[in-house]
Design a protein around this nucleic acid. Structure first.
Lengths: 216, 216, 216, 216
DNA sequence: CATGAATGAGCTTTCATTCAT
DNA sequence: CATGAATGAAAGCTCATTCAT
C-alpha cells in the first residue's frame, strides 16, 4: 500500500516536472504573453485539464519557474566575508560572479525567462523582480562599504551607483552568455565571441574592469 | 486650396500626436499587454475607430513610440572623435552619458516604455531592441579600441565585455533615475537618493567608475 | 447631431430588446442552465461580443427578465382597499386574480421563466424569488386579517396558512394556464381543458373555492 | 459461496446507500447544478471512480433520489374509498394530508430536492415531475367527483381547477414546513410560526380551508 | 473625417466521465 | 472492487479590429 502510494506520488512529481520543463521551454522561446496554455500542454503532450490538475493557472506556473531561478541566484551570491579563511574579498567577489554565471548557463531557460520576460508579465511580478535585484544591489553596496573601510576601495565613490552599475553589467552580460552558449551548441549561426562561453575568463574580465576600470 | 489642405494636415498631425501622447502615458503606466486600446482612446478622448484612422493597430503605435526613443538615443550618442577640436575622448564620453541621461529625463514615458516594457512585447520587437543595444555596444567597443590605440586604455582588456558592461551599467541606472525623478516630483514617497536626480554628478560618477574602477 | 444621437440610441434600445426577446424564448424552452450564451446569440442572430456589449453576463440578462416579470406582477396585485369606491373586497380580490392571470398570459415566456426556472438558477436568485412570494403571502395575509375584522372571514382560521395556500393555488394554476394557452395556439396536441384559457371563469372559480371551499 | 456473495452484496448495498445519503444532503444544500460530483464523493468519502461504479452519472443518482421520494408520496396518497370501514371521505383526505406531511418531514432532504430543485434539472426531469403531479391532480379530481356524486361537494365547481388548487396549496406549504422544521432544530434564526411544525393542526387547517373556504 | 456598434477568433478555466493501475 | 490521474468537450468571457452611418 505504501509502496503503491509512493510510486503514485513519484509519478505525480514526474508529471508535474514534465509540465514545468515544457512550460520553461515555451516561455523562453515565446515569452509569457505570447505563450498560451495551449502551447504548454502541446509541448508537454498532456490534456488541457491535466495542466490545471497541477497548476492553478498560467501565471502560477510562470511564477514557480521564476521563483526557482531567483532562489538559485540567491544561493549563488554570498556575502563578502572578512574571515581570512574565506579568502580575499576580491576572490570572493569573483567566486560570486562565477557561481551566478554557472547557474545561468546550467539553467538557461529559467535564466532567459527571468532576465528577459519576467519584468513585463504584470506589474506585480515586475515589482517582485525589481525587489529581488534591489536586494542584490544592497548586497553589493555593502561589500563596497566594507572595501572602503578596509582602504581597498576609493573613498570618493558612491557605493549605490557603483552597485547598480555592477549589477547592470552582469545583467547585460548574462543573456548574451546564454545566446552565445546556444549558438555554440547549434553552430551554423555564425561565429561566436568565445569569451562569452568561458566563465573563468568572463569572471576575470568583469572583476578587473570592476576593480581597475579601463585605464592604463 | 493649398491652405486648406495644409490646415487639415496640421489638424491631422495634432490629432495623431495627441493619441501618441495618450498612448505613451498609458503604456508607461501599465505596460504593453496590460494596456488595451480602450485605455488609449479613453485617455485621448477619441472614438475607437478614430484610433485606427491614425494607426494600423496597437502594436504599431507602440513601435512608433519605441522608434522615437531609440532615435533620440541614437542622436544623443556621438562617436568619439580624435579631432582635438572635439575635446578629449573622455570628455566626449562624459558628454554622451550626459546627453543620454538628459534624453531619458526629458522623455520619461518613452524611456520607461523602452527600458522596461519593449523587450517583452513580442519576440520581434524584443529582437529589434536587442539589435539597437548591440549597435550601442559596437559603438562603445569602437571607442575602446581607439582608446587602446591611443594608449589610454589597458591593453589587456576585452573591449566587447567592457562595452557590454558599460551599457549594462547605464541601462540599470536609467530606469532608477526615472523613478527617482518621479518620486522627487511627487514627494511623500520617502527619501530619494538625490544623486539619481543629478545628471552631472551621475555622469561623473559613472565615468570615474568606468575609467578607474573602484580601486584606490 | 441630436437627431443622429437619438436614432442611434433607439437602435441600441432595439438591439438590446431583440436580445432580451431571444433570451426570453430560449430560457423558457431550455431553462437557465441548459441555455448557453451561444443559444441566445444564435437565436438573436448576433455575434458573441455583441451580447456582452449589452449585458455583462448570462446571469444578468436572466435577472433582468426575472425582475421585469416580478415588477409586472407587483403592479398587478393591489392591496385590498376598504374605500367603498373601490368596490367590495372580494371583487378587488377577483380583480387581482384576473390581472395576474392576464399578465401571465400576455407574458408567457417571462412567466414561464419565473415560475418554472428562476428558483433553481442559484441560491441567491432562489432567495429573491422566495422573498418576492413571501411578500405576496404577507399581502394576502393582510387582506385576510381585514376580512376577519369585518366579520367576512372565519374567526378560527390561520391567515398565514390560508395566504400560503392561496398563493400556492395560483402558482399551480398559472403554469398550466400557459401550457393550455400554448396548446390552444398550436393544436394537434390533444384536447385542452378550456377553462384554463378563460381568465374570467378561472378567476371566478378560484375566488369561489377560496371563499366557500368545496362544500355544499 | 452463497454466504460470501450475500455478504459482498450487502457491502455493495451499504456503499451505494452511503453515496445516496451523501448526494441527498449535498443536492439539498446546493441544488443540482451547483452540486458537482466532487462535492458528492467528498461527502461520501469515496474516490471519483467509485462513484461511477454505483451510478452511471450524476443525473442518474439524482433521478434515483427523486424517484424514491415520488414513490414515498405515491404510497402516502390513498384513493378515497367509499367503504364505510375506511371512515368518512373527509377523514381519509385529512389522513392523506397527514401522511404526505409526515413523509416530507421524515425525508426532508428528498422532499427539498424534489420540491425545490427537481423541476429545473433539465426539461426531461421537469416533465417527469410535472407528470407525477398531474397524476396527483387526477387523483384529487376523482375524489372531488365522488364527493359531488355523494352530494358532499358543490355541484357547480370545476374539479380540475380545485384539484390543481389543492395540490398547489400543499406544494406551497410543504417547503415552508421543511424550513420551519429546520429553523426549529437549529434555533437562533428567529421565531418560527409554530403551526408549520405541527402536522395535526396543519392538516386540519388545510382541510377546513379546503372544505369550507374562508367565509364565515 | 469621426464615430462606436458589431464582430469573432481565441483565451482561460471547469467538470462530468473514463480507465489504467 | 477501489482508486484518482487523465481526459477533452464545452462553457463564459475579452478585446483588437472592422465598417456602416
Amino acid at each position: 500500500m505504501d509502496g503503491r502510494t509512493t510510486r503514485a506520488q513519484q509519478r505525480r512529481e514526474q508529471r508535474r516536472n514534465a509540465i514545468l520543463v515544457a512550460a520553461k521551454q515555451v516561455f523562453r522561446e515565446k515569452g509569457y504573453h505570447e505563450t498560451s496554455v495551449h502551447d504548454i500542454i502541446d509541448r508537454a503532450r498532456i490534456a488541457r485539464g491535466t495542466f490545471y490538475l497541477y497548476f492553478n493557472n498560467k501565471r502560477e506556473i510562470f511564477t514557480e519557474l521564476l521563483a526557482t531561478f531567483l532562489e538559485l541566484i540567491r544561493q549563488s551570491v554570498k556575502r563578502i566575508s572578512l574571515d581570512p579563511n574565506d579568502g580575499p574579498p576580491l576572490m570572493q567577489m569573483r567566486a560570486n560572479f562565477r557561481r551566478v554565471m554557472s547557474a545561468v548557463i546550467t539553467h538557461q531557460d529559467l535564466a532567459s525567462i527571468t532576465l528577459r520576460h519576467a519584468s513585463a508579465v504584470d506589474p506585480e511580478i515586475g515589482g517582485q523582480v525589481r525587489d529581488f535585484f534591489d536586494q542584490i544591489v544592497a548586497l553589493i553596496e555593502r561589500s563596497m562599504r566594507i572595501g572602503r573601510k578596509l582602504g581597498i576601495a576609493r573613498q570618493d565613490c558612491d557605493e549605490h551607483i557603483i552597485a547598480i552599475s555592477a549589477l547592470g553589467a552582469l545583467r547585460e552580460i548574462l543573456p548574451r552568455m546564454i545566446d552565445a552558449q546556444k549558438r555554440k551548441d547549434e553552430p551554423a549561426n555564425g561565429a561566436v565571441p568565445d569569451i562569452l562561453t568561458d566563465i573563468e575568463r568572463l569572471a576575470d574580465e568583469l572583476l578587473t574592469f570592476f576593480v581597475r576600470g579601463v585605464f592604463t
